[in-house]
Write a protein that binds this DNA or RNA. Structure first.
Length: 585
DNA sequence: GCCGTTTTCGGCCCGACTGTTTTCAGTCG
């Protein structure tokens, strides 16, 4: 739904975000689909996806007159974007909305109901909302429609229940362990030859809709039956030799695909996606007179096999460098792979220390020693303890005296612990004017100062940007913590001119954090890529409040990889000596 | 509505699974 409360800018224009524009085009697509219009919905969806993936404000692109340079945006959609920016809404969407009951779009959210069924429910039974549909199901009125029986009523009823219980997409960090548990059980089955997570979870997207698992097996039926009877499975949606689908607790859907071992690479490529990436690859295959699908890459005439066993072979055959899954979002990676211009992504084992760790000195669950020993076990060479400052009372922030006491404890521990160094840091609050809430005499003596915004979220974009710039220009601040303040699916980022922030950070040599906590992932992948163009140095921190959180480092690396970052872009890939040297300059 | 090294017109990914209808339409990914 389009928001009604558009923020006003100083010039009196309406402030439209990329998200707003994408939402409008998604609704256009839905409504056109309901009307049975062909192809246009795909065009709008493609534009919506492209706009979502932009690393720049669409208003800026529009001002430069470069809207049509966006892949999937042509004359008509560019004109519509301009209208949205100028008027704050799209008359063409309003027209479409008036043509059919508003509830039909909701009906399509129910599993098993697509545009055709939604239309028929409306025209044949007068059902235009989920509530009405529920009543109709209970009264067994659905089976009056041709092609509907008791089974379809049951499915729709279950679909309604699932929709009601459904919250949001799942956070990668919380779902990956569950997915890996299923993966491990499949790996233990005697008929399973290969198994790999696919889909958005393999691409390490920040949120996951459902889990895709790919298996190569010599007895597909046995593997499907095994999968559908796993203890975690609450409901089986479908079960077949090539594809099965189940629901786990919390309404997490897991899809299993079973393929022949020889075609595993083609299937893995296909089921890893993204959709946009695959379409791009397929077009590339078509240009060569070939065909790419989940069974392999074929020369069209005679179905001659070109590649299928390993993903690498498929990319190579299409004259592309291998594209890591994290980059497969159709954000220019195919062009870069063709030109030999892909980045050498930072590796998952490249980070040498955690830059953002909490302890019992503020709101963490463990002592400094416990956190340090746990980090050491994970292979960290150093950690920076960054407990909250006094300004954050809810987190038992530290007063000046306690900060000094903590410093003594860290000095003692460093004498006592081998193979890991503890740096004494702090997470200070940035006040409304952009100043840290800790005296400079204290900050001066610390090894590492993270500064974050924890209050005053509702300032205007101009105020917030200036506030951040002031913080960046403060001599004692080393890193801006969770720079945009977003909480995935819970809280929008602060209103910030990120380009201005990045420019300031690069000039002042201040780190921007990738906060690796699963609900933050802040900076985001898109912001990382943008930051890199400004030459911003990035630091990865877990924001761990528990030893169990130290493993989140991998999710921070995943964001960096999705943001096209290389090892050199991340400060804490350096050794302790390298880190200290950078901090001194 | 977008797009272009077979193109400015005529394509647009396509295969698996389900329910119900006995041959396939609808949905999904």
């Amino acid at each position: 739904m389009q928001r009604q409360d558009h923020r006003r800018t100083g010039t009196g224009g309406t402030m439209v975000t990329n998200k707003d524009v994408a939402a409008i085009f998604r609704e256009m697509a839905d409504l056109l689909t309901l009307e049975g219009v062909a192809f246009k919905p795909q065009a709008y969806l493609r534009a919506a996806r492209a706009i979502t993936a932009l690393d720049e404000d669409i208003t800026a692109i529009a001002e430069r007159g470069e809207l049509e340079a966006i892949a999937g945006v042509g004359t008509a959609i560019a004109a519509k974007i301009t209208t949205i920016i100028d008027e704050g809404h799209l008359p063409a969407l309003d027209t479409l909305r008036n043509k059919q009951p508003s509830g039909l779009r909701d009906l399509m959210k129910i599993e098993g109901i697509g545009p055709k069924t939604a239309r028929r429910l409306s025209t044949e039974l007068g059902i235009t909302s989920i509530e009405e549909l529920e009543t109709a199901v209970d009264q067994h009125r659905l089976r009056r429609m041709k092609g509907f029986g008791a089974q379809s009523e049951k499915q729709i009823k279950e679909g309604i229940e699932a929709l009601k219980g459904r919250t949001n997409r799942f956070l990668l960090g919380y779902i990956l362990p569950d997915a890996e548990t299923i993966e491990a059980q499949l790996r233990g089955h005697p008929a399973v030859l290969r198994v790999c997570l696919a889909g958005s979870i393999r691409r390490r997207k920040e949120t996951i809709g459902d889990v895709d698992i790919l298996v190569a097996a010599d007895d597909p039926d046995a593997v499907s039956a095994f999968f559908c009877s796993l203890p975690e499975v609450q409901r089986v949606l479908m079960q077949g030799p090539k594809r099965s689908s189940v629901v786990l607790a919390a309404d997490l859907h897991v899809d299993l695909r079973v393929v022949q071992e020889e075609a595993f690479g083609a299937a893995l490529q296909y089921f890893t996606g993204s959709k946009g990436h695959n379409i791009h690859l397929r077009q590339r295959a078509i240009e060569r007179g070939w065909k790419l699908n989940e069974y392999g890459l074929f020369a069209r005439e005679g179905e001659t096999l070109i590649a299928r066993t390993h993903e690498e072979e498929i990319y190579r055959a299409l004259d592309l460098a291998f594209i890591p899954p994290e980059l497969r979002e159709n954000r220019g990676e195919v062009e870069a792979a063709a030109a030999g211009a892909l980045p050498t992504l930072i590796g998952y084992d490249a980070v040498k220390g955690d830059l953002h760790v909490h302890t019992r000195w503020s709101d963490g669950a463990h002592t400094i020693r416990e956190m340090a020993e746990a980090a050491r076990e994970r292979g960290c060479e150093y950690i920076t303890i960054c407990d909250h400052s006094a300004g954050l009372a809810v987190a038992h922030g530290m007063t000046d005296d306690r900060i000094r006491e903590q410093g003594k404890e860290i000095a003692d521990l460093n004498r006592d612990l081998n193979d890991i160094t503890i740096l004494h840091g702090i997470e200070a609050n940035i006040d409304r004017d952009g100043n840290p809430d800790v005296r400079k005499e204290i900050l001066r003596d610390l090894d590492f100062v993270v500064a974050s915004i924890h209050s005053g979220f509702r300032q205007t974009k101009k105020e917030m940007t200036e506030r951040m710039q002031t913080a960046i220009h403060n001599d004692h601040i080393d890193m801006i913590g969770h720079p945009t303040g977003r909480l995935i699916q819970k809280r929008e980022p602060y209103a910030l001119d990120m380009d201005a922030v990045f420019e300031a950070a690069a000039a002042a040599n201040v780190l921007m954090e990738i906060n690796a906590f699963p609900s933050r992932l802040d900076l985001s992948d898109v912001h990382c890529r943008r930051a890199r163009t400004f030459g911003v140095m990035i630091g990865i921190g877990t924001d761990a409040h528990h030893t169990n959180h130290l493993g989140y480092l991998d999710f921070g690396v995943a964001v960096a990889r999705r943001g096209w970052l290389e090892e050199a872009d991340i400060l804490n890939t350096r050794t302790l000596a390298g880190l200290r040297k950078w901090l001194e300059t």
